[in-house]
């Protein structure tokens, strides 16, 4: 019985794949030429890199909601769980690893700042910078240089929610001026940079939190 069900699922998945591929080749050409539209409006966006312009200006709503989703996921993770009581006692690791980490982490911080700055005119931006920061935090944690987060102190809470709050504040302020998230052309560049800095810190903390808040299972400490 189980084998028949398995074969049926495999067969349906195969048909699904075929149908998707075939329909993809029969799609009519797009009616709207999005790359040209982005290129035309790029001078008004405040940045020179199209992907950053789409992320933080043309489709700022998506990014705003995405940050909210990330915060919700972290809260959801914490809701059912007690955070790790204490860092588990591990055997001291090889001295090379902490040494290398001490050397690498400042470089990763530098990379994050560079990526954030580069986002305005070339590939890079808040998301990549935040990912690098989070990776640095995970690396520090794995080499026992950074203890797991056990409680939500005020400073940490501010950091986690700060990006979303800054974004919402800017959106609300712009709503008073005219439309939600429609930046005035003259200040668009600095507004985007301001939001991006806040987002980098918050997203980095949230992504690191997904790992550093991992609940400790009782048996792991034994």
């Amino acid at each position: 019985m189980k084998r028949i069900a398995g074969a049926a699922v495999m067969l349906s998945a195969g048909i699904l794949a075929m149908a998707l591929v075939v329909s993809m080749f029969e799609l009519p050409p797009p009616a709207v030429r999005l790359p040209q539209m982005v290129q035309e409006k790029l001078p008004q966006s405040g940045v020179e890199h199209p992907v950053t312009a789409v992320l933080l200006n043309f489709r700022g709503y998506d990014t705003l909601l995405e940050v909210a989703v990330l915060l919700l996921a972290l809260l959801g993770m914490l809701a059912g769980e007690r955070p790790r009581p204490a860092a588990p006692d591990r055997a001291p690791t090889d001295p090379v690893l902490p040494g290398l980490t001490r050397f690498l982490v400042p470089l990763m911080g530098l990379t994050a700042v560079y990526l954030l700055w580069a986002g305005a005119h070339r590939p890079g931006g808040a998301f990549q910078a935040a990912a690098v920061l989070a990776a640095a935090a995970v690396l520090l944690h794995l080499t026992d240089l950074l203890p797991a987060w056990t409680s939500l102190r005020l400073r940490l809470r501010t950091g986690l929610a700060g990006g979303l709050l800054v974004f919402i504040t800017v959106a609300a302020w712009l709503l008073g001026e005219g439309r939600l998230l429609q930046y005035p052309v003259a200040h668009a560049g600095s507004l985007i940079l301001f939001i991006e800095v806040a987002l980098t810190i918050s997203l980095g903390l949230i992504l690191a939190g997904l790992f550093l808040f991992l609940p400790d299972d009782d048996e792991r400490r034994r």
């Binding site: 890079g124 990912a131 690098v132 990776a135 992504l207 790992f211």
Partner: peptide, 14 residues
């Protein structure tokens, strides 16, 4: 390249 950067750090790393 933007997605490649994010994927390398997040998809494979985190």
């Amino acid at each position: 390249p933007d997605i490649a950067l994010a994927e390398a750090a997040i998809g494979a790393g985190l």
